[in-house]
Amino acid sequence: MIDFLTAKPVLIGLHLGFAILGIDAFLWLLGEFSADIANIKRRAWAAVIGCVGFIMTWIVGGYYYVKFYGPLVKPTILKGMAPWAHAIAMEAKEHIFLFVVPLALTGIFAALLDQETIQRLGLKRPLLWLVGTVAGLGLFIGALGFIISAAARWGVLQP
């Protein structure tokens, strides 16, 4: 079982799958805040699912990055036609990702606020920005991941 879960394609799939779960859950949370729906339980579910997704993608992606990306993928990209994909996209991706879990954890505390408190504190707009930033950073990181994967494929095809 461990051999299956730590196989390279499975790790990539899990990394992407958990990231999509995190992004989708925060888009769901964005809709809940945007529509002023006073259902704390549903908001909390969305935030917790999203946060768990981001934590899992961090662990799985981190294992893949440390164990396989450095020794196997990075040299292929650097000798390919887009070495900047590592130097810019990967470097930015791996470090911007560090922002996401602290932001998502703050999203859980935000989801637990009742509607009266949100209105009294004038938090609706900042909360929309917080949750939108988490989802937006997730999508940006996903786009960087696509660039890195494409560069690795083109690196392999280089003579």
Binding site: I88, E91, H95, I96
Partner: peptide, 22 residues
């Protein structure tokens, strides 16, 4: 409110700064 606004600004600026830096 202030801490939340600072957090959003710092996260967005941090992402822009790191992308431009690399």
């Amino acid at each position: 409110r202030g801490a939340l606004k600072k957090l959003i600004a710092i996260a967005i600026l941090g992402a822009i700064i790191l992308t431009l830096f690399f």
